[in-house]
Design a protein around this nucleic acid. Structure first.
Lengths: 231, 231
DNA sequence: CAATCGCATCTGGTATACCAAAAATCTGTT
DNA sequence: AACAGATTTTTGGTATACCAGATGCGATTG
């Protein structure tokens, strides 16, 4: 018996497919076909789809195939604003609640992210990005508020794809590194105001970055230097 | 016209049962029995349980009956802290985004709540409370950030029962009224700092209130523990 | 030739039957 | 009488069969 329940496993697989682009935004997810493809029955696949729907990755429509979500700029921005509030709160609480070991772990993730960010190319970018996610998730967990950590993780997952596109850009890496470092320093000093301000700034920059990305995508395919073609 | 899907309807019924106390915390929710009781099959009931699980009202355990959640004081407090952040953000955004009509609606809810709070007794307390919920929900919606409103609503629902127990108390009503009024005034002045501070204070008071309630309940539980053992 | 009506089919929603794991109980032994 | 093991029963997990509604295509008619 595996730790993860079957619907969770299916959800995980579908999530990766969605976020990597194998399942393009707008694609319908037909219960029967996908169930057959994965060799499972419709029931657990159905549950998996519900999980993804709750995460905001797929859209449920009454009496219609669920479709992979294709969030507008406003929707992404709205979500990041919430994420900003959640993560700022996490950081402030972590200053009070986190153990030294947890803060050390956060620093370790920062260092690893930094190292990877200098060399990573191609497929390694996914690892780079997963370390990035782990960094932010670790902060949320360090708040010692499970509900907060869970909601934070949900928002993070919801924007996996957008954040991925953003994190891949070379131009943003130096800024990200410096902001991450400031966050870590703030945590080590256990200075809530500083950590809060740094996280706020970090996510505000993310919003700008995503906005630019969206506008570039709207404009056309000419700007291929940073944006990798997924579809 | 199936505005409400069957699982949603079931979830609604179970939610009311849980929050009104018909289904006591710790009670198992057995798929078969409940499905038979409600005259539906296990499949939609199963989905309903998942919905409630995502809302935090029931706890899912691997290979075990889901049980009605019985949150500890820390869990409730953690959730309120998140709610505080979400609602504060809502209020601040609402100052910028809300239409005059929306703010007027919020004021109307405040007036209605105030009026009810002077007279309500017995069953009318539920209406009083629902107006209270509507007031806070309206603020979240006035942020014009659907994701935020949705998450906020989820947290509100999760703590329906705790908030209900708190809101029923006579002693807190005057404080609640004055804080609600300050929030409305802040919104009408479109002063984010003021609204944020007032909402923060309001929910901080809620935390205190809930803490007191929990301590009272713990004391009461000890005296009745013998009866429970005898059955 | 186009528009519309109807039928075939595809899709999700629901019910039910089957399976495997876990809990409780009962029995046999010490 | 107490403890351990096995069996039975209860439970959730999964697969599948059935149903109703929506959709798209095609034929027929104006």
């Amino acid at each position: 018996m595996t730790d993860a329940t079957l619907p969770e496993q299916i959800a995980l697989k579908l999530r990766r497919d969605i976020l990597r682009g194998t399942l393009a935004p707008g694609d319908p997810i037909k219960e029967r076909d996908n169930a057959l493809d994965l060799g499972v029955s419709r029931t657990p696949l159905r549950e998996a789809v519900r999980i993804l729907a709750k995460e905001g990755l797929v859209l449920l429509r009454p009496s219609r195939s669920p479709v992979v979500a294709d969030p507008s700029l406003k929707e992404v921005r709205d979500a990041v604003v919430v994420l900003q509030a959640l993560e700022t709160l996490s950081g402030e609480l972590a200053c009070r609640e986190a153990s030294d070991a947890e803060i050390a772990e956060i620093r370790a993730l920062f260092e690893r992210h930094h190292a990877l960010s200098e060399t990573a190319e191609g497929d390694a970018l996914i690892e780079l990005f997963e370390v990035d996610m782990a960094f932010h998730t670790a902060i949320a967990r360090a708040s010692h508020n499970p509900a907060l950590a869970e909601t934070h993780a949900a928002y993070l997952a919801r924007m996996w794809r957008q954040r991925y596109l953003s994190a891949v850009q070379r131009r943003a890496r130096e800024r990200v590194r410096s902001q991450h470092e400031n966050i870590v320093l703030g945590l080590e000093a256990r200075d809530p105001a500083r950590v809060g301000a740094e996280i706020n700034a970090h996510l505000a920059a993310l919003i700008n970055n995503l906005t630019r990305l969206f506008e570039a995508r709207e404009a056309g395919r000419d700007t291929t230097s940073n944006e990798r073609d997924i579809e």
